Amino acid sequence: MSDIINFGSLQLRFLHSKEDTAGSVDIFEMTLQPNARMPIPHYHDRWDETIYGLGGISTWTIDGQEIEVRPGESVFIKRGVVHGFTNRSAGPATCLCILSPGVLGPQYFKEMAALLSAGAPPDPAKMKETMLRYGLVPAPPA
């Protein structure tokens, strides 16, 4: 499987999903262009997430703490912990994302890409509804 999903300054390439792992894991490669960020910090209570740096430097804010992930480094995000990410560097940053168990799949990202590429400013209510439907809970503003 190699689904590639582009939206905004993010590109995801699914390597395995809940469909082909019987729900064991979702594994995808994510490339963040400079200044790319997760627009809405969130948490999920149905899966854990491991991020492994492949190239460049991405900055992950996990439970309020900023952690730079460089090639060969990793972070573990336990379910229920608020997190987000950004790429503050001048070049792309790529990481491998592993969700366990696999309950998300590429469809969530395809739906979000459609919302973000509709030509008009994204509708926050539709984004929140999509996130909640897939088990991502937007964090309240700080």
Rank of each mutant, 00 (worst) to 15 (best):
M1R: 01
D3C: 09
I5E: 07
N6K: 08
S9N: 12
Q11S: 15
R13L: 08
F14S: 07
L15A: 03
H16D: 00
S17K: 02
E19Q: 09
E19R: 06
A22E: 03
A22P: 02
D26N: 07
F28D: 06
M30C: 12
M30L: 14
T31M: 09
L32G: 07
Q33W: 09
P34M: 12
N35G: 05
N35D: 13
P39F: 13
P39Y: 09
P41W: 09
D45M: 11
W47L: 12
D48S: 11
T50V: 11
G53V: 08
I57E: 14
W60R: 03
T61G: 03
I62T: 04
D63S: 02
D63T: 05
G64C: 01
G64H: 04
G64P: 00
G64W: 12
I67E: 01
E68I: 03
V69D: 06
V69S: 06
P71M: 15
P71F: 08
G72W: 03
E73G: 06
K78A: 14
H83P: 03
H83M: 12
H83F: 07
G84S: 05
G84A: 04
R88W: 03
R88M: 09
R88L: 15
A90H: 11
P92D: 15
A93W: 04
C95L: 13
C95M: 13
L96F: 01
C97F: 06
L99N: 08
S100M: 14
P101Q: 10
G102Q: 04
P106V: 00
Q107K: 02
Y108T: 04
K110Y: 02
E111Q: 03
M112Q: 02
A114L: 03
L115M: 01
L115F: 02
L116V: 10
S117M: 12
A118D: 06
P121D: 02
P124Q: 03
A125L: 06
K128F: 12
K128M: 14
E129Q: 15
E129R: 11
E129K: 14
M131W: 00
L132F: 07
R133C: 13
Y134G: 11
G135V: 10
L136V: 07
V137Q: 14
P138A: 13
A139C: 01
A142K: 15
